[in-house]
């Protein structure tokens, strides 16, 4: 199952909640304000590292670019909208709002 998260972790516990329910191996895709979670050197670095031990983590490149985020936490994969579609091809979707 693909989980999408669209909220900044600074103002919202959506990412935290999502990872509590995601099963090992489920990919998680950060979109919209969700991408702030993977800006390098922010305070969520350790949390991202923990997530990556269990789940592949993706961030939508157009949303990173739109927010001026050029350096992201290592281990996170960037995808464009086409990559987003590819993830949806492979998995049912759980869109955390």
């Amino acid at each position: 199952m693909l989980h999408t998260v669209n909220k900044s972790p600074f103002g919202n516990d959506t990412l935290e909640t999502c990872i509590r329910f995601a099963l090992p191996g489920d990919p998680i895709l950060l979109i919209e304000d969700g991408v702030y979670a993977v800006q390098a050197r922010n305070r969520f670095g350790a949390m991202i590292e923990t997530i990556l031990k269990k789940n592949p983590l993706f961030a939508l490149q157009p949303d990173l670019s739109a927010r001026g985020i050029s350096v992201i936490t290592s281990g996170v994969t960037t995808v464009d909208y086409e990559g987003f579609v590819e993830l949806v091809e492979q998995h049912q979707v759980n869109s955390w709002l």
Binding site: P62, D80, E82, V85, E86
Partner: peptide
């Protein structure tokens, strides 16, 4: 909208 366009393109 962007997702829908990309899905159709694929």
């Amino acid at each position: 909208y962007n997702f829908a366009e990309a899905a159709i393109k694929r």
